[in-house]
């Protein structure tokens, strides 16, 4: 197994893997545009996309398929990148964006929003975005006061998540109707995403990924351990908080329109590490591409398997991601952590 792993890292360097993944992303996007309840042949799909028109196909394309494909690609890339950053900064293979309070904050904000403004479904994404930032800010602020060590960050995340999910339970208990909107958000899914809803989170995600890529040397040095990093002139504590804030922006933006999707941020970085190793530059790039392709394909699958009914993609991700994660744990116990 170990031989196979190093073989993979050696043979396919970052550039080659990235190129393959880019092709996968394009294929996933194309499939996701063409296939669905109504299949649209590629030629017609391209024509509908580029020349507009008001035919049924063109309208499906513009208002349903294209936003949905974009949402899948953006959310997948953002969550996977956020996962890489969080795992690297916390030096914890089991960490994910939810570890730093992003999901808890977004969840509470969405629940409160559903309870107070049940008629304003459009407000949920904005509330979730703010909530995600709030949750992460709370975790980072607590950790900052206590020296920003890796373990206080994880513990602060656990504490904040506990408090926030108690908050969600309280809201749902007092306003049971809130559950209608909230449960969709909690499961996570991409149905009904509109293009204008994607503008702000999309911009945040693209800028966030570029920022993370430009910090790849800093992230690598940080992975050498706090003292070694500081002795190389890197302000380790500040960079750790900055990197986690970046992860929170990425994950928060994704969660705002896609709901609380699990496992992408956890699993994709682990898969990519097999192929490109732990160097942050290639790892971030390949994880972004891999996450985008994976979420887009899972969403397609979720739409097709029970057509004309749709399975929220969050359920499918958990069903596929859960077993993978258990396999990962079992392997790790037998391996070097044993």
């Amino acid at each position: 197994m170990k031989g196979w792993r190093t073989f993979c890292i050696r043979r396919s360097n970052g550039a080659k893997t990235a190129l393959l993944l880019l092709l996968a992303v394009l294929a996933a996007a194309a499939l996701s545009l063409c296939l669905g309840a109504e299949s649209i042949p590629p030629g017609e799909a391209a024509a509908a996309l580029f020349s507009g028109g008001e035919s049924a196909a063109a309208r499906i394309m513009r208002y349903v398929r294209l936003p949905r494909a974009c949402a899948g690609l953006l959310a997948g890339a953002a969550l996977a990148c956020a996962g890489v950053i969080v795992q690297l900064v916390l030096a914890n293979p089991l960490a994910a964006p939810s570890t730093i309070g992003v999901n808890a904050g977004a969840g509470l904000a969405a629940a409160v929003c559903c309870a107070i403004f049940p008629w304003a479904v459009g407000l949920v994404p904005i509330a979730a975005l703010l909530g995600a930032f709030g949750g992460a800010a709370a975790v980072l602020a607590i950790a900052e006061r206590t020296g920003a060590s890796r373990i206080t960050l994880v513990l602060a995340g656990v504490a904040i998540s506990g408090i926030f999910s108690a908050g969600v339970d309280a809201v749902v208990t007092f306003v049971p109707e809130a559950l209608n909107g909230y449960s969709d958000f909690r499961i996570g899914g991409l149905s009904g995403v509109a293009m204008d809803e994607l503008a702000l989170p999309g911009a945040l995600i693209l800028v966030g990924i570029l920022a993370a890529l430009s910090l790849h040397n800093e992230l690598d040095v940080l992975a050498l351990g706090t003292e070694q990093a500081q002795s190389l002139g890197l302000p380790a504590k500040r960079l750790r908080l900055l990197a986690l804030a970046l992860a929170a922006v990425l994950a928060g933006a994704a969660v705002s329109f896609a709901g609380l999707l699990g496992f992408v941020g956890l699993v994709v970085p682990h898969i990519m590490r097999r192929f490109v190793g732990e160097e942050s530059g290639p790892l971030l790039l390949c994880s972004a591409l891999g996450g985008a392709a994976m979420l887009c394909l899972c969403d397609l699958l979720a739409r097709l398997v029970f057509a004309p009914y749709e399975l929220p993609v969050g359920i499918l991700l958990s069903l596929l991601g859960g077993p993978f994660f258990i396999w990962l744990l079992l392997r790790q116990r037998r391996g070097r952590h044993g």
Binding site: D220, G225, Q228, S231, G233, G277, E279
Partner: peptide, 26 residues
């Protein structure tokens, strides 16, 4: 001005060359 070899050293799975290259980080 001063380099430091710490007593406890983490081992990220990157190539030795990349590792040494980070000595140029300052």
């Amino acid at each position: 001005k001063a380099a430091y070899l710490a007593q406890s050293r983490s081992v990220p799975n990157i190539t030795a060359q990349r590792m040494v290259l980070h000595g140029r980080f300052p």
